[in-house]
């Protein structure tokens, strides 16, 4: 179980203007959940993913709050403790991850490096495990002897996913794993990922800018805007009707391509500058439902029956404003 509590990430810049990329994020991912995280570029979704995996350079930023994996706080861990935990408990697949293989090592070696570093068994067992993983991601085990450049982009991303699963982690973070791939390959990889997740029961944090893809892939989805989670819900609840006006606007950018009538809309305006202090709700300038309270008071995360939303439309309904 992953719990993130009041997580803040602030990038320091040389000019003294620091940028708060993640601003007080709270959520949890129960074991075996396929969680999606969606937002536009610059909303802080990748920073959040990196912060959870502790992949950020702490010299260039301030990070506060806690990230608890089974009750242990990753933020407070030493790099030695972290090294043990990575791959073993938490693994990450990146958008460009398929190009991050060591080009002079065979696929097999990329796996054995990780396994050896974590003290995994005899050579025969290792080979068997790698072959099994490659079959899981629908690749021919013969590719063990291939070099990265011999594989296509989609195949490399499959290998990257297999590699992330090598030590049976509890949580896999995938940051835009299919963005660089063709639509058909993307579809195949996402379906494969869902199958693996159901079968091996790890939890997933799937980060993407593509709401349509996330809604298709995930069980629950979090929508991020300007460093905050503005809505979190099971996918089927969101599809019935988005609560936050931002989610609603984002949803209207997608549609069924074969529907009789095509609705194709955008969202006017652009996200706020996170290097400046914000007052009130960060979505106000682009929101069609903004009220006076929205300009003054920042809406807090409000727990609903099956999700959560941070918007005054709902605090008001519950008599929350002014309390």
């Amino acid at each position: 179980m992953l719990e993130v509590k009041d997580l803040w990430v602030k990038y320091r810049s040389q000019h003294g203007r620091s940028v708060s990329a993640v601003r007080g994020v709270n959520f949890s991912i129960p074991d075996g959940t396929f969680m999606g995280l969606v937002g536009e570029s610059g909303c802080g979704k990748s920073t959040l993913g990196f912060a959870i995996a502790r992949l950020l350079n702490s010299q260039q930023l301030e990070i506060s709050g806690s990230v608890l994996l089974n009750g242990e706080d990753l933020i407070k861990m030493s790099s030695r403790e972290l090294r043990k935990l990575r791959w073993d408990k938490i693994a990450i697949v990146l958008q460009g991850g398929m190009n991050a293989f060591n080009p002079v090592l065979k696929i097999k070696q990329q796996f054995t490096d990780v396994m050896k570093a974590h003290g995994q068994g005899r050579a025969e067992d290792r080979d068997q495990r790698i072959a099994e993983l490659l079959r899981h991601v629908q690749l021919d085990p013969a590719l063990l002897e291939a070099y990265p450049h011999e594989l296509s982009g989609g195949m490399k991303q499959r290998v990257a996913i297999a590699l992330s699963l090598v030590l049976n982690p509890e949580l896999v973070i995938l940051d835009e794993p299919t963005t660089a791939l063709d639509v058909i390959v993307q579809k195949a990889i996402v379906e494969m990922l869902q199958e693996l997740q159901r079968h091996m029961k790890f939890s997933v944090l799937f980060i993407s800018h593509d709401l349509g893809l996330v809604l298709e892939a995930a069980e629950r989805v979090m929508v991020m805007y300007a460093g905050k989670i503005v809505e979190e819900e099971p996918v089927e609840v969101l599809l019935e009707g988005a609560k936050h006006p931002y989610t609603e606007a984002l949803l209207s950018c997608y549609g069924d391509p074969q529907a009789k009538e095509l609705r194709f809309k955008g969202i006017p305006g652009s996200p706020p500058d996170l290097s400046k202090p914000l007052q009130g709700c960060s979505f106000v300038p682009r929101c069609s439902k903004a009220m006076s309270a929205c300009r003054e008071l920042e809406p807090q995360r409000l727990e609903l029956e099956r999700g959560a939303v941070a918007c005054h439309l709902y605090t008001k309904m519950q008599g929350g404003i002014g309390k």
């Binding site: 629908q138 639509v183 058909i184 993307q186 579809k187 195949a188 379906e191 494969m192 199958e195 593509d210 349509g212 893809l213 809604l215 298709e216 996918v235 089927e236 599809l239 997608y254 069924d256 391509p257 074969q258």
Partner: peptide, 29 residues
């Protein structure tokens, strides 16, 4: 190509016609 476009609305009602014309959704995996 058409079936590969993410379409969350279709997920709950898998009527996408398969290449062979049958009713089940295609298995990309």
């Amino acid at each position: 190509l058409l079936q590969a476009i993410p379409n969350p609305w279709k997920k709950r009602q898998p009527t996408a016609h398969r290449v062979d014309g049958s009713e089940s959704a295609p298995h990309f995996a």
